[in-house]
Structures are given as C-alpha cells and as structure tokens.
C-alpha cells in the first residue's frame, strides 16, 4: 500500500505534538538501532562462556555484570533486542494480515460468512491467551518458531474484530456503491477502496499488539517454551537469573528493565497514536 505523503507527514507532525507518542517513538527507535548495531555496540560475544568471569557485579569491563556462565549481560541484552523486535514484527505482521483479511470478508459479506468467521474469533477468545499459547508452544517443539506460531494463533482475533467493525460502517458508504456502479469486482472494492480506509485503526491495534507480543514472548520464554539456551532472549535470561536472585539481582533486574522499556515504548506510541488519530478528538493546540 502506497502511503500518502501528505498524510504521512501529517502523522509525523502530530506525533511531535503528542508527548507520549514522541517518547514512545524515541524509545523504539533507540532500541531498533541497538538491535541493528548489536555486533558493533556489544563489547563481548553474547554466547561465549567464560567461567572465570562468572557472576560479576556491574563494573567497568562489564557495565551490567555477567551471568552464571560469565557471559556479558549488556551484550546479551543487545542481541536479545533483535529477537524481541523480530518476533514482535513477524507476529504482528502475520496476525494482522490474517485477521484483517478475515475481518474484511466478514464485514463485507455479512450473513453466514460473517457468522462463521466471527464465531471462530469468539472460539479463540474463549481461551485465556497465555494458556492457549502455552498449549500450542508445548505441543510443538520448544523454540522461536513455535512461540511465533502460538502468538499468531492467539493474536489474530483482535485484528478481525477491528477490521470487521470498520468495514461494517464503510461498506454502506456511497463510494462503495459508486465503485460498484462502475462494475468493479467485490475483491477490488474490499482491498482497493475499503482497506485504505481502515489502515488507521489497524495501525493503532498493531502498535499495541507489538507490546503484547513482546511481553508474551518474554513470558513464554521465561516458562521455557521459547528459544532455548544459549540464545540471548530476555525472558529466558530472566529465568536463568532466577536461582541467583538473592545474591546477584542484576541478572533479573536488567532483562526485566529491558522488557519493560520496550513494552512501554510501544504502549506509549500506541496510546499516543490512538489519541492523535481518533477523529472524535479535538486537537487542542
């Protein structure tokens, strides 16, 4: 989808005016940069063990200390950002794609199509999402891919609901009738005429969904369903630090902070975007 330039600039302008969206954007951008340049920024190899330096407190050589295998926590956190962000993007991307397509079909055709799709959504929503994810991740082989699959399975429903809701009101618009009077196919109307109109609410849900996915990834990894050691995943690092909680709390504090900051970034941006893009909100200068 080509983004309208003036519309895009407009959003950037609004983000600048919203304090929470600005802060969220800065946090996310910094962490994205950290993830991209992890090999340059990280002073040590995140996987290589060095038993002599194990369980060191934060010091000059190891700004965030080392873990029980002597690996540098700072370096591991940098590489961990890559995993969290990638999982977030992949999960949100695929679940939004599935959810939005199903939601548009449900809203556009109504009737039996709508009932079938939305009952399916309801069925997925009846399970507590973390349990469902644990079951799926547990049935599959533990690892990154099964976590991604599990998070998509529990995550796509919200995009369907938002998509369907928007389509329900949009399909009654005259420009849809106008397109139909030109002999345009249903599919073309759905994706060429309706889809561009629902991007805004989808972007908001997707931003908040990123925070959700990253947090769920950490939870599943903490429980051992995620990427297996020695992969530097934040949730897994929390879990690995648990036995040393009392003597070396930095092993849990820093990964916890990393998760918190990234999730906070997406939540701030999502909330900010919702305020900015809400058409009912008067913009008070």
């Amino acid at each position: 989808m080509k983004m309208n330039n003036s519309r895009f600039n407009n959003i950037v302008g609004h983000i600048k005016r919203s304090r929470s969206a600005t802060l969220g954007t800065i946090i996310i951008l910094l962490l994205i940069l950290a993830a991209i340049f992890a090999p340059i920024l990280a002073p040590y190899d995140p996987i290589e063990t060095n038993v002599e330096d194990r369980l060191m407190k934060p010091c000059i050589e190891h700004p965030l200390g080392t873990d029980h295998l002597g690996r540098d926590v700072y370096s591991r956190l940098l590489y961990g950002a890559r995993i969290s962000l990638t999982v977030g993007i992949v999960v949100v991307g695929i679940s939004a794609l599935i959810g939005v397509i199903l939601g548009i079909f449900a809203g556009f055709y109504g009737g039996l199509t709508d009932s079938t799709i939305m009952r399916l959504v309801d069925a997925f929503l009846t399970f507590p999402s973390v349990f469902l994810a644990i079951v799926i991740a547990g049935v599959l082989k533990p690892g990154l891919v099964s976590v991604i699959i599990a998070l998509i399975v529990v995550g796509w429903t919200k995009y369907s609901r938002v998509g369907r809701g928007s389509v329900l009101s949009l399909k009654e618009k005259e420009f849809v009738e106008s397109a139909r009077s030109l002999g345009v196919h249903d599919r073309y109307i759905m994706f060429r005429h309706i889809f561009p109109n629902i991007i805004t609410p989808i972007i908001i849900v997707a931003t908040l969904g990123m925070a959700d996915a990253i947090l769920s990834l950490a939870s599943l990894s903490f429980l051992g369903f995620g990427p297996q050691p020695p992969t530097p995943e934040w949730g897994a690092m929390l879990n690995a630090g648990r036995p040393f909680m009392q003597t070396d709390p930095h092993l849990m504090i820093f990964p916890g902070l990393a998760i918190m900051i990234l999730v906070l970034g997406f939540n701030l941006l999502g909330d900010g975007l919702r305020d900015i893009l809400d058409p009912k909100r008067e913009i008070i200068e």
Binding site: R7, F175, S178, S181, G183, V184, H193, P196, N197
Partner: peptide, 22 residues
C-alpha cells in the same frame, strides 16, 4: 461488464461518492 462500461451511473453526492483515500 455493462455497468460502468456501456451504462454508467453518475451518482448524487459527489462528496461521499468519491473515496477519500484514493
């Protein structure tokens, strides 16, 4: 095939009949 090709409708309300984001 006939709609929009051989027989066209010029609808009322041009403001709402044009898609705002296309």
């Amino acid at each position: 095939k006939i709609r929009g090709g051989e027989i066209t409708n010029i609808l009322q309300n041009p403001t709402t009949s044009l898609n705002p984001v296309v």
